[in-house]
């Protein structure tokens, strides 16, 4: 299974594109943040596909986005 590319995504429906990206992202997110990986992956999937493809190729970008998502989640939970 090679890297996911924009060309591979372009042949799929918008819903399938998020599905394909989620399948690649989830294990990576889980390795960074095991407890909230499903929620964080859902949050990340709302971003642009081009940004998600970049994160799949750049562990540093992914990590910083996961950190940001954790911050957003914690702030949200603190408000409730």
């Amino acid at each position: 299974q090679g890297p996911l590319t924009a060309t591979m995504l372009s042949s799929a429906s918008p819903e399938e594109q998020k599905e394909m990206l989620g399948e690649r992202l989830f294990p990576l997110v889980r390795s960074i943040q095991p407890t909230k990986a499903s929620k964080i992956t859902g949050m990340l999937l709302e971003l642009d596909n081009s940004e998600l493809l970049h994160m799949l190729e750049s562990p540093e970008s992914l990590r910083s986005m996961v950190d940001e998502a954790i911050g957003v989640l914690q702030a949200h939970q603190a408000e409730e």
């Binding site: 859902g42 709302e46 971003l47 957003v72 949200h76």
Partner: peptide, 18 residues
């Protein structure tokens, strides 16, 4: 900070393989 990240986003669910 966190622009574009929505804490109410749908939770990702892995589709079982096979």
């Amino acid at each position: 900070k966190g622009a574009g990240l929505n804490p109410n986003a749908k939770v990702w669910q892995e589709i079982p393989q096979g």
